[in-house]
């Protein structure tokens, strides 16, 4: 691009329009966190389920304690050192980040509260996960994530007819459909954008 090329007024407007469109259609999320947390939740759900079936009782929920110990440092290390920058950050990206932080707080409260009154946290986790996943999908205009949110909502209702221990299997299924699949699609989309 020439340094001081004289532009006509029409050329100026065309340039503005084309540059705004260039930035607007860029997806900054690369799906890594969806896949990371999806895999961790599936592992913990299944371990919890098998430990309970094996008769470990209250101890069978122990794998969940290790999930943030692995997930939080892995997420931070990836962001700081490995993530290939999309080059831009939009207001939507920032809003989605704040939404997931709020989800983290809500998730902690659900676990604390359900532990205190001795009820299964799974339906409530599925409900708030559905909300945050669906809202993120709407903001990104990314249909696989919106569909993932709907899956979480349906599984929340399905919990009504399922024993608390079997709800863990619904959680693993929900996370596979609602996190892992949209995460893989988002990752492919992000890579194809980067290769253009």
């Amino acid at each position: 691009m020439a340094q001081e090329k004289q532009m006509t007024h029409e050329e100026s407007l065309e340039l503005i329009q084309s540059m705004i469109n260039t930035a607007r259609h860029k997806v900054a999320d690369d799906g890594f966190h969806l896949i990371l947390w999806g895999v961790l939740v599936i592992i913990c759900s299944l371990l919890n389920y098998f430990f309970f079936q094996a008769g470990y009782g209250n101890w069978s929920g122990l794998p969940w304690l290790f999930m943030p110990v692995v997930g939080v440092p892995a997420g931070i290390i990836y962001e700081r050192s490995f993530r290939r920058s999309a080059g831009i950050r939009t207001v939507v990206d920032t809003n989605i980040k704040y939404l997931w932080w709020s989800y983290g707080v809500a998730l902690f409260l659900v676990l604390f509260y359900s532990g205190s009154i001795q009820v299964s946290p799974v339906p409530y986790i599925l409900m708030i996960t559905g909300m945050v996943t669906f809202a993120s999908g709407l903001m990104l205009r990314f249909r696989p994530m919106m569909a993932g949110g709907v899956v979480f909502f349906i599984l929340t209702l399905a919990c009504l007819w399922v024993q608390p221990v079997d709800q863990l299997l619904l959680e693993a299924l929900g996370v596979f459909l609602g996190y892992i699949i949209p995460g893989i699609i988002l990752r492919r989309l992000s890579k194809s954008q980067a290769d253009v």
Binding site: M1, M7, S12, L15, I20, A23, R24, I88, R89, V91
Partner: peptide, 18 residues
């Protein structure tokens, strides 16, 4: 100026760009 206007047009629609 073509380049400065292009940069400003990119930055106007995002929070930040590298």
């Amino acid at each position: 100026s073509e380049l400065r206007l292009a940069v400003m047009s990119l930055l106007i629609s995002v929070q930040e760009a590298d």
